[in-house]
Design a protein around this nucleic acid. Structure first.
Lengths: 195, 195
DNA sequence: TGTACATCAGTGAACGCGCGTTCACTGATGTAC
DNA sequence: TGTACATCAGTGAACGCGCGTTCACTGATGTAC
């Protein structure tokens, strides 16, 4: 039996605060002090819940990989086929996702930083990319190999669409995202519907 | 007349070292000490050349926006039309670019970090994205509006392809990049040639 | 119900350490005469 | 050609500051009897 958790509620608050802060400001730029403040505590108590900042990062990524926790896709499990694919494209490449990194996918925010952090935390990110590609592949038209290929490129387009849209000023972001959504639908083999 | 530069060669060495280090390790994670060491000097002399670390970042981005300095495209100015587009896609989404961030495009490495840094250094990155999109649009098939749209999404796919491929382990990166290249060619309206 | 004690969760001060920045100084180079 | 001096480029020690981590301590909760 592992040691009993101290306070499950506190641990969950720390984990949630960290998950949002890492996505909003990056891993290195987020201090434990800020995380604990957001969780309503002082920084000293942190080490009763997690052995290190690196372990906290790992825990946030594991949690984000739980399907039911997936930030953007919680309520679209009822869909399937091209309606599912279209919904993922539209939610991922949305203005809301661009503007709220703290509530979005960790790939655009942490994808560039984590491969440089010692201890391979980017493995969890790679798993996220592969899971998303597998989900898309299951619902794309075409045979298996073609669908898998398209799904991989689609993930890249989603991630890159958000990364680039976040560097652009607000008034250019919307048109940019629309262009990305259009290529995503075409690349996915979906019929072009509305803009 | 502005003050005469101290040592143009030293300044250029600092700028080059910083440009590579920022792309390799990110902006915040790169110390002035490391940059000056790479330039063959001690850290104290830095402020004779640049007023601050932020100004150094700005200078590196401006330099990377000079067309003739563009890291990946130096020797393809002779091409045009779909051959140019195909060459950009193949070089950008290459194993070499994935493996050598310090010599590559700043968008995948700094795209997520700079929008969070105070002082809007990401404006220079946005300019990079727009310049690349404009270059592609000039050589894509289709009318102006369509070409511009496709070019924007293409930039997103290029950037996202490298970001995601860098999170993946080496043995999966090659197939992933190939998938991205294929969708990029299709999305650009090019005929599918070899893998 | 009441008392004594053990355990628990969180506090806040303190520790190294590295970073951006400053600055007095050194040695080399250039110029005046 | 030689001397005296000013200027320049880079050195290295020092400064605050913030961060990850540690730890002695406090107050609250639970349990034994």
């Amino acid at each position: 039996m592992a040691a009993a958790p101290r306070s499950a509620a506190s641990r969950a608050r720390i984990l949630d605060a960290a998950s949002r802060a890492f996505r909003a400001h990056g891993y290195a730029a987020t201090g434990i002090d800020a995380i604990m403040s957001a969780a309503g505590m002082t920084h000293g108590g942190f080490y009763a819940h997690f052995p290190s900042k690196a372990a906290l990062l790992e825990a946030t990524l594991v949690q984000l990989n739980e399907p039911q926790r997936s930030p953007l896709f919680g309520d679209i499990v009822a869909l399937s086929g091209r309606r599912l694919v279209a919904a993922i494209i539209d939610r991922y490449l949305s203005r809301r996702h661009r503007d709220q990194p703290e509530a979005g996918c960790p790939l655009p925010t942490l994808g560039a930083e984590l491969p440089r952090v010692p201890g391979n935390p980017s493995e969890a990110l790679a798993a996220k990319a592969r899971h998303l590609a597998a989900l898309l592949a299951d619902h794309l038209p075409g045979d298996g190999a073609t669908a898998r290929e398209r799904a991989q490129a689609l993930v890249a387009l989603l991630v890159g669409g958000i990364v680039t849209a976040r560097t652009l000023p607000e008034n250019h972001a919307e048109a940019w995202l629309r262009s990305c959504r259009r290529m995503a639908r075409t690349g996915a083999g979906l019929a072009q519907e509305d803009g």
